[in-house]
Structures are given as structure tokens and as C-alpha cells.
Design a protein around this nucleic acid. Structure first.
Lengths: 256, 256
DNA sequence: TCAAAAGTGTTAGCGCTACACCCATGT
DNA sequence: ACATGGGTGTAGCGCTAACACTTTTGA
């Protein structure tokens, strides 16, 4: 079979060798924590969105932002680097060969892809509703999958996701980045279910409410929610201005 | 000038491209927190110990362990990965050229070294007294330097050290790895000065004592210390067995 | 006897946990 | 009326900061 040389077959010409990035993109919808996964063409193999770093033009983080925009259509996303995966077992030449062949490509023209990669893991927190998932050229599916229903993953992506979740869990009370996952307005119960999913345990409703309100960064909206056979819940909004002010004050007080 | 091809001129043949590791090795002596630095031959440029990853034989961490043993002579060291530095400005070809030429080498035979590197940062916590610092082949000095007297550093190593310190500060109360920096036996005051140096602030003597003792991992030795015009202080020993038991119990209780 | 450093006691305040209580709403 | 979920009050507990007090030692 004869193939033309496509742009992507020249990857190796312009990207850093031996290094890739993989991104665990978290979203939250219907009280479920989800991540964005790709499925390789004509296989049942899923994988994290990822990519390579332009040798002359990109910081690692810029490469991650590029990939994020390619897969989700959005920009200015909360990003956090959570680890590097550099096991010598990370030489997935055979798998890459299989993936490319299933997609109707060949790795022979570009053996670059079959080398050993050290990958840098980032996680991203996005407002799921703003995204438009978009597969890459070796995938036929790109979409949100519940964190509790992760299918079989290629490479070592399963353990990368676990590390990302652990990392997210750790920073939960340190930073308030988790609000990047929420829509414009939400109820306390929504927020609590997000915390519970991330922490993997139930929290006490009444104390959770107080804790969140005491942060001083939630604006209570007059609007109510009308639903079932019970009292209407307030909607809340994350107040970025108050948050920024708090950060400033913290900077000042910590100096002494 | 004609040069023979030395082993190290063939680096590029066997190491991963575009990736390096740099290690911030912390030690503690005379109530001072120190790090191990190298000075390049015939220059006044200092740098962190670092190296590259064997393409076929080494995990990243194994490469780090190899470099650590080469520079300090010891093994089984506490290690923690704290970040990746991947700015596109990290292309230090000119500096590398200068360093190699000052050391009487040339980079012409091995331009590999002048490429752009993404570096993975690790910090190590060692018992300084057990180490025998040992320069590499482009350095004429390898030794311990007080964290408050860091000289001019090559590349972006200054900011790598700052990130390492910040990382160390963060984990101080989460893990108890800091005891890897202490000698076999020590006084409370020694330990307190270590904490104070890492945190960059004074702590209250009496409360620090209680906090440390309440951890339940210090064994009080009967021996006393005889020194100045004051009451003799107890010596303490880090009890690794008690620590391991505690970790086990924590694992069990956290499950529920 | 006095200064310096080591060790212990005591208190107030703060945050977290658990649980009791009241409110609003649809069936 | 009552079940369901939303919102507030409060007592107890543990941790911490702050500081007073005692002990040991050499000058």
C-alpha cells in the first residue's frame, strides 16, 4: 500500500524527542466527575489527549494549551502539572504501530512515534458545557466519560489518571481551583457532590455549607431553584473578585 | 587542537534526547541547611548535580539515583520529584559550549549537549556527614553550600532551587521525610533550627517541643549533652519502627 | 546569685464534628 | 399531615498560640 507523506508524518522533524504531554481534562456534569477521552480508530482502545512539544516555539505549558484547545475548543483553562512518568517500560512502539495501522496510516515513514517517551502529566479543570470535544486524526471518538466508568486504556494512562485524581484531591482545600469545574451558578448540593466525588467519601451537609460560605468567595443569588417537594435551594456564584482580593490579603499577611 | 573521542563525547548515542534531570540535594550541618553544588572547571559558575537518562536501561528515578551515588557516594536516598522545567528558553547551547571549552573539551564532536533540554527536578534529603562529594568531569569543585549563600548559578538553576525549597516547605508537615536530614541523634533545638530554616520563620520553642513529641516517633535517649551554662538537653533519635507502625495504622483508619 | 537554655503547665481561642432544630414545598 | 431536602444553632473536642513557671548549669 502506498501512502502520501502527510504533515503529521513529519512530526519528528519539529518536535522534541522522547517527550510527550498527556492531559487529564476534568469536567463536571449531572453530579458526575468526568474526563475527556479519545478512542483510537477501529479499536476499542481509549487514551488521554496528548501531544508533543514544538522544538523552537513552545514551552511545555504552551504545548499543553494548544492540545487543550484542539480537543475542547476553549482557551484560558486552569492547568496544573502533577507528575512525570518516565519508566523505561514506557516504550510503546508496538501499540503505536497498531494504532496507526488501524487508522490507515503507517509508522514506517515516521518511526519517530515508536520511540520511548517520557510524558509530563497535566490536569485541566474546565466547565464541561463550554467544550466541543474534537477527535484527533487517529481517533474516531472524543468525549466525556464518567470517572467511575473508565474503559480499557492504552499505554499506562490508567495510572496517570489515578495520579491526577490523587493530586486533585490533595489540592482541594489548598487552592480553590475546583470552581473552574462548576457552571456559572450552582446549588450547595451540586458543589458538595463534586467534593464528595473527588474525595471519594460522603461529607456532612450542614458543615459543608458553613465551610464553603465561610470562605467568603460565594455570592448568594436571590434566585431560587424550583424542583421537588421541598424548600427551594439558593443558587450560588463563584465570586472571582472576592477571591482575588483574598489572595492579595493572604500575600500581605503571610509576609510577617 | 586535536582531541580524542572520550566516552562522554558519545553521550548522545545512548541517552534520551531533550531530557535531563537536576537534583537539589539537601543536607543539614551546624544548624545550617545546605545544598550540594558543582563548580565548572576554570569558571565561577556553579550548578546543580544533574545528568541524563539511559535510553534502554533506566527509569528516570534510576538515573537520578545513579547521579546521586556518583556525586555523594551513598545509596538509598530519600527522593521526591517536584517539577518539570520546560521553558523554550531552556536552550543553553552557548553556555554548554563555554563550560566544555573551559574544561578543555569541545562540543563540536558532540553537539548533542547543546540542544534544548526539558529537565525533571528532584530533591534529595541526605545525612550530610555520610557523603563524600565528588565532582564530575567538567567540574573542579563539588561541595555543600549554605542555602543563604548560594553563588551565581548557571542556567535556570536558581529558580529550580527555589521551587525545590517551596516543595520541601509544603510537605514538611505532611510527610516526616525531614528526619533524613538529621544525624543519628540530635537535640530538639537542632531539629527546631532545621524547621525554622526550611520555613523561613521562627517557631515557638515550647510548642515545637510538644508537637514533635506528640508525633510519637522520637525516642528520648538517656544521654545528655554537656555544653554551656544551662540545663543539659536530651538527645533524641528518630524511631523508624514506630514511624512505620504509624503509617500502617494510618492506612487502615483512612480506609473507612 | 544570676543569666541562659531546657522542660512542663495552663489558658484562651479557633475550627471541626455531630446532631438537634426549624423552614419551605409538593403530594 | 408528612416526607423530603434546605438552612441555622450549638455543645464538645482537639489543636494551637501565647506565656508563666520551674529546673539545671557554669560563670
Amino acid at each position: 500500500m502506498h501512502k502520501k507523506i502527510a504533515d503529521e508524518d513529519l512530526l519528528g522533524e519539529k518536535f522534541l524527542s522522547n517527550i510527550s504531554v498527556d492531559i487529564v481534562i476534568f469536567g463536571f456534569h449531572n453530579r458526575q466527575l468526568k474526563i475527556l477521552l479519545l478512542r483510537f480508530k477501529n479499536t476499542s482502545l481509549y487514551a488521554l489527549p496528548g501531544g508533543f512539544i514544538n522544538e523552537e516555539e513552545e514551552d511545555i505549558e504552551e504545548a499543553v494549551e494548544r492540545v487543550l484547545t484542539e480537543r475542547t475548543g476553549i482557551k484560558d483553562i486552569y492547568l496544573e502539572q502533577f507528575g512525570v512518568f518516565g519508566s523505561k517500560k514506557r516504550a510503546f512502539g508496538a501499540t503505536h504501530k497498531h494504532i496507526h495501522e488501524s487508522a490507515g496510516k503507517t509508522t514506517e515513514l515516521n518511526p519517530w512515534i515508536t520511540q520511548r517517551f517520557v510524558t509530563v502529566g497535566y490536569y485541566a479543570l474546565v466547565n464541561l458545557k463550554e467544550t466541543v470535544p474534537n477527535p484527533d486524526d487517529v481517533s474516531d471518538f472524543c468525549g466525556w466519560i464518567d470517572i467511575n466508568e473508565i474503559p480499557t486504556l492504552a499505554f499506562d494512562h490508567k495510572s496517570i489518571i489515578e495520579k491526577a485524581l490523587e493530586s486533585l484531591r490533595m489540592m482541594l482545600d489548598l487552592k480553590l481551583a475546583v470552581f473552574n469545574l462548576m457552571p456559572e451558578s450552582f446549588t450547595m448540593n451540586d458543589l458538595q457532590s463534586l467534593y464528595e466525588t473527588i474525595l471519594g467519601k460522603k461529607l456532612q451537609r450542614t458543615n459543608f455549607q458553613r465551610k464553603m460560605l465561610s470562605l467568603g468567595i460565594l455570592e448568594r443569588l436571590d434566585k431560587h431553584w424550583t424542583g421537588g417537594a421541598h424548600k427551594a435551594a439558593y443558587l450560588y456564584r463563584f465570586d472571582k473578585n472576592k477571591y482575588n482580593e483574598m489572595q492579595k490579603e493572604e500575600m500581605n499577611t503571610n509576609k510577617f
